[in-house]
Design a protein around this nucleic acid. Structure first.
Lengths: 111, 111
DNA sequence: TAATCATATGCGGATATCCGTATATATTTC
DNA sequence: GAAATATATACGGATATCCGCATATGATTA
């Protein structure tokens, strides 16, 4: 089971934190959607998401060409509360807007 | 004002995290009490507490020879919620016991 | 003011983290 | 099976983090 120290280290990087807040508000997203919403390189996003998966914080699922990531269903309540508190602090800002503006989103009508 | 990313980085080190959880449960403590409760070197504890002070997460106050640290009174609610959630995850374990067992605690009858 | 106790800081060195670039792998489509 | 798209990984270099040790600073007491 994940420890507070491990979770906090995972959240201490802005790429990972923004990915997680986006998952908190959007359920499930594929890598290219993170890349678009955060305007970061694909390898960078992929590496950080893989890191979160290895820690058991998120779960991935391949759907054809795409790999979707979501918060791990068994993520403990205290960890969700931590994420909620961070969300309360500053939300996800423009990120959701950029995501909504993405053309041909693979996640649409997928959940 | 402190950002989630900055707070999480501060909490990602076990020395700092345990100091903060101890402050959450004990209000105000001096450096030598942290040293005793956590069983760590004095320079190590002092440097981490100074770091937390520089970030605005804790407040220090000199009382004679001793310097007492506490959570910063203006620490935002979301940050306190994060600490509470971490506390809920594993409390402070044996740390409080070791603190209670410390002889001649400078904090006693000080608050 | 000398001695003592509490705390803070300077300095290396070891290790961890993060990134961009290039490339590898997986899946679908033609 | 070749091309196109999506994702993952390997590598090297820059930077950050953390620690122990030694020492400096601050406060009290004799």
């Amino acid at each position: 089971m994940i420890t507070p120290e491990t979770l906090f280290r995972a959240l201490s990087d802005s790429t990972r934190l923004r990915c997680l807040l986006l998952m908190l508000s959007e359920q499930s997203l594929c890598v290219c959607e993170f890349v678009h919403a955060l305007d970061l390189s694909q390898p960078r996003v992929s590496r950080h998401l893989g890191h979160l998966r290895d820690l058991g914080i998120v779960q991935d699922e391949r759907r054809g060409q795409w790999v979707h990531y979501r918060l791990h269903p068994q993520l403990p309540d205290w960890a969700r509360e931590v994420l909620q508190a961070a969300f309360a602090a500053d939300g996800v800002g423009d990120i959701r807007r950029r995501l909504a503006a993405m053309p041909n989103r693979p996640s649409i009508a997928c959940d």
